[in-house]
C-alpha cells in the first residue's frame, strides 16, 4: 500500500508574533502610564520657579490647581478648573467687587467641606512679586485649607 506523501509546508512571509508581543506590551504600558483626558487646569504657559528638592504627588484627585500670575490693577489673576466638565481653567476672582462676594474663598470652602485631605496646588509665575501671591495665601487661610503645595519645575543639573 502506498502512503500519501506529506504536504509541503512553507512559511507565509514574516513571522509577526514577536512584533505583536512587543506592541501589546507597549500599549499596556501607555494605557497605564498615560493620563489621557485628565486635566488639572494647570496653565502650561506659566513659567515655574526651578528647584532641586521637591516631591511628586502620588495623586492629584484631592487637589485644586490655582494658576497665579500678575493681573491688572495690582491684583492677582487666578485661574482654576472650576467646572470639571468644561476642562478649561477659568478666572476666579478673589473679590468680586460687583457682587461683593469672594468666589475663590467660596470655591475653596466648597471643595474643603467634605474633604479633609483637600489640597491646593499653587502654580505661580516665577517673576511674580509676592504681593500677588499674598492674597491667594490669605484666601487659603480663610477657607481653612491646610494643605498647600507649590508647584515647581525640576532644575536641570548642569554638567560640571
Amino acid at each position: 500500500m502506498r502512503r500519501a506523501p506529506m504536504p509541503h509546508i512553507k512559511e507565509a512571509g514574516v513571522n509577526v508574533t514577536p512584533l505583536i508581543d512587543v506592541v501589546m506590551v507597549l500599549i499596556v504600558f501607555f494605557m497605564i502610564v498615560a493620563k489621557i483626558g485628565v486635566t488639572t487646569g494647570a496653565d502650561p504657559s506659566i513659567k515655574l520657579p526651578e528647584t532641586i528638592l521637591g516631591t511628586d504627588l502620588k495623586t492629584l484627585s484631592n487637589t485644586l490647581t490655582l494658576n497665579v500670575r500678575e493681573g491688572p490693577a495690582d491684583e492677582p489673576m487666578v485661574t482654576a478648573l472650576v467646572d470639571g466638565s468644561n476642562r478649561q481653567a477659568q478666572e476666579v476672582k478673589i473679590l468680586d467687587k460687583l457682587t461683593n462676594r469672594h468666589p475663590l474663598r467660596e470655591l475653596l470652602q466648597a471643595a474643603r467641606k467634605d474633604n479633609p485631605d483637600f489640597r491646593v496646588i499653587i502654580r505661580g509665575e516665577k517673576e511674580m512679586a509676592y504681593r500677588f501671591l499674598e492674597p491667594v495665601l490669605e484666601t487659603c487661610v480663610e477657607a481653612n485649607v491646610k494643605n498647600v503645595a507649590f508647584n515647581t519645575s525640576k532644575a536641570v543639573e548642569q554638567a560640571q
Partner: peptide
C-alpha cells in the same frame, strides 16, 4: 509625568 514637582507645606 513631566518635570514638575511640589514643595509641600
Amino acid at each position: 509625568a513631566g518635570a514638575d514637582h511640589f514643595l509641600v507645606t
